[in-house]
Design a protein around this nucleic acid. Structure first.
Lengths: 228, 228
DNA sequence: TTTCGTGGTTTAGTATACCAAACACATGAG
DNA sequence: CTCATGTGTTTGGTATACTAAACCACGAAA
């Protein structure tokens, strides 16, 4: 299967080419254009993106560090594949980290952010017939979890959460149901309620419960897929 | 100040040169040979290590991703400096992650590992006049925290703990007192006791308390240093 | 004395070239 | 037909070359 990729627009801004390649690859993976198991070749990529191998090489090393591609000893790099055990472990980490972040955010989130999240959640709930609902949801989900992480006041916690959220988005697209997303939206509202009440315990519990449901869903999903 | 570096021995094994450079830099930073604030130049490093700039460039990017060096827009990279707030944040993460690991290890650590840790702890307690006690302690500390992380059964938790423990070692050498280390040894024994009793709550609490003390100590230490 | 060029030097980023290792396919022996 | 072997191709890792940008030091002008 041939996948066409083009460098993203922000490449023109005075950034590094290797960063542009990184972001291009990243969004290709998390959008599902590059599926798990796909082998990526440095030369092929560099030709497609009209850059030399050097920045591509750099980008792949970074992606490998993120866990989004695996650089095998075979001189071959593949887009990371997730087993059910991987997914389980990933969500164990998300529950731990984001539960803590939610707890802290209940104390620290400012009113403006809280209002913005609530507004977006409301508009999403009323706009469920929008054909682009899935994409809107993904943006909100990103914003939501990111805002809570930042409200924790811990830069490292924030960074680690972002890293795991990236992995989450990496296979997210492989299988979600509209009902699942609507249910998740309700859970987000529950978390927001707890934060607004400034109830750390409840915020943490709501976040952990929320992630628990995703965890169960995806683990089931991946077990099914690997057994067929 | 001139710092002499040589590639570590494992460079000969079929690994990547860039990984060897990475490990060399890493140990130079965590051992204190390369002090925070030192500017590192790719050409200077490549000459010192007798490799080309390419693997050095790679290694620096990886170290930047770890937060051990900062790549400034100026085309200059410096060894990361820690502020008191950084230290605080770092230990907040360690308490969260390693507390969880200790909790899980109380359920999952096998008897052989437990026995090995206890034996090392005992021999350290009796050997406190050894001139190399500091180095022996560092090895034990590494082994101890690593063993608990692995006993958690979560690969990602293990990996993240290792990453933060690395940062810990990065400035650890900058100031510890013999009394502090002996006290820490006692705390380790408390954690081992809890694990042996298979008491997850107590193991977690003991670990968090232990890290809390380091946190308070280092934050105090760094505040003092930055104010002088 | 201070300030603003100005050119040489050094930096990191990128492109290109080279190489050893590993793959893939074909061909031959059994 | 199967399996081993050999060879051409492709891979990623490394070295080297080139470039643009940033630093630095020195000098001229205010």
């Amino acid at each position: 299967m041939v996948v066409t990729l083009t460098l993203q627009a922000e490449s023109s801004e005075g950034k590094r080419l290797s960063d542009s390649v990184y972001e291009t690859m990243l969004s290709a993976i998390i959008s599902g254009k590059l599926k798990p198991g796909t082998i990526v070749s440095e030369v092929a990529l560099s030709r497609q993106l009209n850059v030399s191998r050097t920045p591509v090489h750099d980008a792949l090393r970074q992606l490998a560090k993120d866990g989004l591609v695996q650089q095998r000893a075979n001189h071959r790099a593949v887009v990371a594949e997730f087993t059910a055990a991987d997914i389980y472990d990933l969500y164990q980490m998300r529950k731990l980290l984001e539960g803590e972040a939610a707890r802290l955010a209940a104390k620290g989130m400012d009113r403006a952010t809280l209002a913005r999240l609530r507004e977006t959640a409301n508009s999403l709930a009323e706009d469920r017939d929008n054909p682009k609902w899935g994409a809107l949801w993904a943006d909100f989900d990103e914003d939501f979890h990111n805002a809570i992480a930042e409200s924790s006041g811990s830069p490292r916690l924030c960074q680690d959460i972002a890293r795991y959220h990236l992995l989450h988005r990496g296979f997210n697209k492989l299988g979600t149901t509209p009902e699942g997303l609507e249910h998740a939206l309700e859970e987000h509202v529950r978390i927001l309620d707890a934060i607004e009440k400034r109830d750390p315990k409840e915020a943490q519990r709501a976040m952990v419960d929320h992630l628990q449901e995703w965890q169960a869903y995806f683990v089931r999903h991946f077990r099914k897929k690997s057994s067929e």
